[in-house]
Amino acid sequence: MKEIENGLAQELLEIYGERKSSSPEKQREMEVRPGESIIVEGQVPDAVFIILSGSMKVHLNMAKGSEYLVALEGPGKLLGEVEALTGSLAACSVTALEECRVATVLPADYETWLAEDHRFALLVNRILSFRLQSFTRRAAVNLSYPLEYSVLKMIKMQFEEHGSRVLQISKEEIANYLGTSLRSINRIFKGLQDKNILAPNKEIEIISIDEVDRLMELHENK
């Protein structure tokens, strides 16, 4: 699944690069500072965005003021494409976790791009299909495996995404993403620290990614 996701992201960056080379005057890019939102929940996005560099979170604001983490997105991810075609309000906010650079495509230009470029239109279809499949798979994993497995899977996903043993995500965000309580996440983390998989630090730091893989395999083979 990760290889497919990376392949889709890389292909989108390639197609955007080709379009930028052929008509540079029509392409717009902007820098986004940490904490700045390019899409705001409940508002109509003013553009479709392609992440060129950096990491962003897709999140929902809950009624009691808490935040529900939907996804973490990096380079090659497409955002706001559904709202551009439907004119609907954004269901989630998208906020930069670090310095980011994004391409911005106005809704009218996005529709023109889809109509003119069959390869791009097919890619968007594949991206949407993969996203739906990923949400379905995530729900199935949460039902089929214990919480520890889901936490390990997310830790590994973050490590592969950023290549760093120190994760750019909090325990609270992991709890929201997995639909569980912070207390349950703290219990899982204490167990992983006792197994020398995670360091007993305030930030989430992986001691051994090999042990993450080994423990995931044990869960999968039960």
Results as ranks from 00 to 15, higher is better:
Q168R: 15
R126G: 04
I185V: 07
S184L: 14
K153D: 08
E217C: 03
F189R: 15
S37C: 10
F135A: 12
A121H: 08
E172M: 02
M154S: 15
Y110C: 00
E203N: 10
K20E: 05
E81S: 06
D210S: 08
S170H: 07
P107G: 08
V102K: 09
A108I: 04
F120T: 06
E25C: 04
V151K: 08
S53G: 10
F49L: 00
E148Q: 09
L114I: 10
S22P: 03
S23N: 12
N176T: 09
I197S: 04
A139P: 00
G163P: 01
Y16I: 00
Y149P: 03
S150D: 08
L52F: 11
P75R: 14
I207Q: 05
G179V: 07
L143I: 08
N221G: 04
A103T: 09
G191H: 12
S134L: 02
V94I: 14
S170Q: 11
E41S: 03
C100M: 05
S129G: 06
L182E: 09
P24M: 07
N61C: 02
R137N: 11
E11I: 05
Q158E: 13
N176Q: 15
F130K: 08
K171Y: 09
P75G: 12
S144D: 09
T136Y: 12
H219P: 00
E81V: 05
E160Q: 15
M62K: 12
V102H: 03
E36P: 01
K190M: 11
I207A: 00
K57F: 00
G42Y: 10
S150T: 04
K195V: 03
P107S: 08
R165H: 07
D194K: 15
Y177G: 01
E14V: 09
P200H: 08
Y177R: 13
S134H: 13
V44S: 11
F130V: 10
A108G: 02
L79Q: 03
F159G: 06
E99K: 12
